[in-house]
Design a binder for these strands. Structure first.
Lengths: 343, 343
DNA sequence: TTGTAAGCGTTATCAG
DNA sequence: CTGATAACGCTTACAA
């Protein structure tokens, strides 16, 4: 705001050397007050004054060079570019991670790896010392990235946990299976007799767990033919999945969609087929993303604390960076059912 | 993929020194092949072989230190966190910019400045040498950031152009006024007699220009009372704006919404009021974002080439960084009307 | 064409 | 507690 005119002309930035001169001490002493070591009060105050006076701002490159670190953490998304944008969850995770990271004075660098691009590029990046750690989002089982961070011993955290994730690498997520079970039970409790599921991304742990949870909730009522599998967590897939279900069982009266976007598509297909929601069929989603309240009626769904997930993942990386031991086995955040109007 | 076992043990990364030793030359020569200078063919091949052999990857910090640059460009969004996520346009711009930047080997660093946070932090960042340039998105007129980049002489580009942007600073965007005029005319051509507008974010150049374009298209038919002003480009504001319009003029039969999200909200409000779209009232939006095809009926709208905008903004910064002179006056990309079903 | 050597701005070691 | 001084890995005159 109040841009106090600094005495230093642009083009020449003040260095530790300058502030040492201004304060009449050596560079070492300056460095000590900058980083916190034993310095006499007189020296300290003189230096602090000098710092303000010359408008000092540290040179990251120099510091990183001598400290042998980059002060950056990679945020790696294994997902096509478009989905990276569309997926409201990833955005929330990113924001949460970024906040935590920048509070700790780390720069987050975004690396979106879309399938066609070679994994080699990112491997090089990770092993090149460009980042001190990494947060990995939406990895599938057997994703090469798992091996890479493993053998690099790069401090990292996964969001979600691919089956073959090494046990020493921490992850954070939610209990997809239990939450799914819970919301499906609740759907059942509204008196639905024939409930199906639109299962998406079953090659991912989240997708597989949601399917498993659904199956468990239905128990003996589970009917294989009432599950429509679609590849992506998106609107179009939801609509398509719903049409499939409708075709297989016109009397269907309940549906669990693997995500809110999928649910929104399902609602759309239902409307086109002349069914009312929740009158004729109750539908529930997953994520509690903006889709949930943007759809009519508002979706009953499972809340996913995206920002918190991101923040915790960042925190896990930060802790490793500080040399702390982190508890093994992953962290599962609460994901409560939020009941609205679609069922 | 094929992780050829490198001979270097983890923990010791190869340096220019190592490769000089391996190739039997001096560090200077190595640096020359790395950066392109005169080197004999024999030396060059030997060095290139050595580079591969030791698995060399350059140390950015060291290079940046000596080169006095950061090899990073800031992507600054003057917008609350939530909107940063919701706005599909910003996402596209970001992606486009990121692609261009990383192709040129620059790291993009995201800085979202939400209003409550002091501008001081970002000022410090920009003047601290953390970035070599900046792309600024959705600045309002009189935004302090305009002064900051101006007085810092930081190579930069704006997306959109606040009225008081200095003439020497380039911007890229679209011609909001003309496009609005065009789509409004088209709406009029469907035979609508009472057409209103839901104007959003009129404190921003995009918002103001869209309003101006609307007024111009209507000419003598323009009716002040048929313009509802709302603060944000979002769904909720759209619904509210539509209700206002409906109240002021129940016979309204056409509406230009300042963005697709706003239009989607309007459609929703219309439906609640028992009006059909496009039967009773035709509505058109702006952006051609995912809202357009996610709304029923699909929205007629103005296509905004978000990724291109981002790419061009990045390119403008890159050119300044290379020392090229960039043409003054800003770059306006084409934004054609795409006609669908909502009018 | 190549080698040598001088920094770039910090932090860290080690005598004083 | 403080001041020299040696790195950190790289580029770049300047000499050879």
């Amino acid at each position: 705001m109040s841009a106090t005119e600094q005495p230093n002309k642009p083009g020449k930035r003040a260095t530790v050397h300058d502030i040492a001169a201004a304060a009449g001490v050596s560079r070492g002493t300056v460095s000590r007050v900058l980083n916190g070591g034993y310095v006499s009060v007189t020296a300290r105050t003189a230096i602090e004054r000098a710092i303000r006076e010359v408008g000092y701002v540290p040179n990251t490159a120099a510091r990183n060079l001598v400290m042998q670190r980059s002060q950056a953490v990679g945020f790696i998304v294994l997902e096509p570019h478009t989905l990276f944008l569309e997926d409201p969850n990833i955005g929330g995770i990113l924001l949460g991670a970024n906040t935590t990271l920048s509070d700790a004075d780390y720069q987050m660098v975004n690396l979106v790896v879309d399938s066609e691009r070679d994994t080699a590029r990112i491997t090089r990046y990770l092993s090149g010392g460009f980042v001190d750690g990494a947060i990995i989002v939406s990895a599938r089982s057997h994703d090469p990235i798992i091996q890479v961070v493993g053998s690099l011993a790069l401090p990292s955290a996964f969001v979600g946990h691919p089956r073959d994730l090494r046990p020493e690498i921490p992850y954070v997520g939610i209990d997809n299976m239990t939450s799914t079970e819970e919301i499906t039970r609740r759907l059942l409790a509204t008196g639905r007799r024939r409930v199906g599921m639109i299962a998406a991304a079953v090659d991912r742990d989240s997708g597989a767990d949601r399917l498993a949870g659904f199956r468990r909730a239905l128990g003996p009522l589970f009917d294989e033919s009432l599950v429509a599998e679609v590849p992506l967590y998106d609107f179009a897939c939801g609509a398509k999945g719903m049409r499939t279900l409708l075709e297989r069982e016109p009397r269907i009266d309940g549906v669990f969609a693997a995500s809110d976007a999928v649910a929104a598509g399902a609602v759309e297909a239902l409307r086109e087929a002349g069914r009312t929601v929740p009158g004729d069929v109750g539908v529930v989603g997953f994520d509690d993303s903006s889709w949930a309240t943007r759809t009519r009626p508002h979706l009953s769904t499972v809340h996913q604390p995206a920002a918190d997930i991101g923040a915790h993942a960042a925190d896990m990386v930060l802790r490793q960076l500080r040399g702390e031991e982190i508890p093994q086995g992953g962290l599962l955040l609460p994901s409560p059912v939020v009941w609205r109007d679609s069922a």
